[in-house]
């Protein structure tokens, strides 16, 4: 059953906000205003929003190097997100995390990590704490397809299964680990079958379809919350942009990208909303332009914010 109208509109709004945020971040990076790296999640908005909308505020997520969307979907402020990736003192990590370690901690994000697969044990530990204290909370680590070849990912699925922990392992299959296609690094077609070796459910959904992701995530979260253990949720999608903003994508044909862009999750969801009478095209145009305005305001806020004071460099190393 589809969620109510307000929820669906909110989903669309969140997806539009992520899209605008990513486009703005890429633009700022290419103009040299963001230093370091930016890994855009364009094409994967549906899995971030579909999963995070199925969570409560007290549930925790653990991100990856590509986690602008996860944080925004969990309720992060675009202003403080933008300030963070511009390295400003008003950012969520006071300019200490940047794009790759961004974490809106007050919304239930335990952080984003640049080491692929490494966030999964963290979620397992948090879930074990929930279980020990009898809290009905759920931990959700996001991982890309390439991360499922790391030891940490497998160790985590195994531990969560053995200890029957409230974890929903979300695998965003965007087909590429930097330049290497998943079919060149993994000898199975359906990544959800990896769950079988840990005796837990593995669910494969269309990661371009936010309602499908939301439905599967809601079920997995309910299962975890009821003490029935972890689930592997595979959202199959595609990375529309390069591994990082500005990457020369020598490893794939433009036609391949164009083919997948036909399944753009935002365009798809807009069509669904209009077709099912949830919203009119004009209403969704308004949502789009509101998202644009919000991101413009976030950039203004970030640019006007002060840099971190170097004299505070030692303030956060020890208690």
């Amino acid at each position: 059953m589809a969620p109510d109208t307000a929820t669906q509109i909110k989903m669309y709004r969140q997806m539009a906000l992520i899209r605008e945020f990513e486009l703005a971040a890429m633009d700022l990076f290419k103009r040299g205003q963001i230093k370091g790296a930016v890994h855009p999640s364009i094409g994967q908005e549906a899995s971030a929003v579909g999963v995070c909308m199925a969570l409560d505020h007290d549930d925790l997520i653990v991100g990856t190097h590509r986690s602008h969307g996860h944080n925004l979907a969990k309720g992060a402020s675009p202003e403080r997100m933008m300030a963070e990736i511009l390295g400003k003192d008003t950012g969520y990590c006071k300019g200490r995390g940047g794009s790759m370690h961004i974490a809106a901690f007050d919304t239930g994000s335990l952080g984003a990590l640049g080491v692929v697969g490494a966030g999964n044990p963290l979620a397992v530990g948090a879930a074990l704490a929930f279980q020990m204290r009898g809290e009905r909370r759920v931990a959700v680590p996001f991982t890309g397809d390439a991360g499922t070849n790391t030891g940490s990912w497998h160790e985590s699925l195994n531990m969560a299964s053995v200890w029957n922990l409230p974890v929903v392992f979300v695998l965003e299959d965007n087909k590429y680990g930097v330049s290497t296609h998943i079919r060149d690094s993994t000898n199975i077609d359906d990544l959800s079958i990896r769950a079988q070796s840990y005796g837990i459910p593995g669910v494969l959904v269309n990661g371009f379809d936010v309602l499908a992701v939301y439905e599967a995530a809601t079920e997995a979260v309910a299962r975890a919350r009821a003490g029935k253990g972890p689930t592997l949720l595979v959202a199959e999608a595609y990375r529309f942009e390069g591994h990082y903003a500005g990457e020369p994508e020598v490893y794939r044909e433009r036609s391949e990208v164009a083919e997948h862009r036909k399944h753009d999750p935002l365009t798809h969801f807009r069509r669904v909303l209009v077709d099912t009478g949830v919203a009119s095209s004009e209403e969704l145009d308004d949502v789009d332009s509101a998202a644009k305005d919000e991101i413009s305001a976030a950039i203004e806020f970030a640019k006007a914010s002060p840099d971190p004071d170097p004299s505070t460099a030692m303030d956060y190393i020890y208690a």
């Binding site: 490494a118 044990p121 963290l122 397992v124 530990g125 074990l128 704490a129 931990a139 030891g151 985590s156």
Partner: peptide, 26 residues
């Protein structure tokens, strides 16, 4: 056995899980 836990042989998982426990208040 829920307080003194025999883990799988998985050091990254053990320390990572301990990390998650600590971050979550244990």
């Amino acid at each position: 056995s829920d307080r003194v836990v025999d883990t799988p042989v998985a050091e990254s998982g053990i320390v990572g899980a301990a990390f998650g426990l600590a971050v979550a208040g244990m």
